[in-house]
């Protein structure tokens, strides 16, 4: 898990006082660790940490379901050649 995703994990834990940890494959949406009110804030955080612009008109929910999915979609190191 990259440092960025660790930061995202801490941000989510900070908003859910009753939990201590989040498994990388835990469904953030179905478990309501990220709800409809915090989802937009999560997008903003990912955008800030990744430096990538997220187009809200072209989102795939599967890219946000788990910490692993966020890591793969927004923070995976791309090697060229």
């Amino acid at each position: 898990m990259s440092d960025n995703v660790a930061q995202i994990k801490q941000w989510i834990i900070g908003r859910n006082k009753e939990i201590q940890d989040i498994a990388p494959d835990q469904d953030l949406i179905d478990s309501r660790l990220v709800d409809s009110l915090s989802f937009v804030e999560l997008l903003i955080l990912i955008q800030q940490l990744s430096g990538k612009t997220i187009d809200q008109s072209d989102l795939d929910i599967e890219s946000f379901r788990t910490l692993d999915a966020i890591d793969n979609r927004y923070f995976a190191v791309t090697t060229v050649g």
Binding site: D35, S36, V40, D60
Partner: peptide, 9 residues
């Protein structure tokens, strides 16, 4: 804000 996640899921 709520509408976005409701639209996606």
């Amino acid at each position: 804000q709520r509408a976005l996640l409701q639209k996606l899921s």
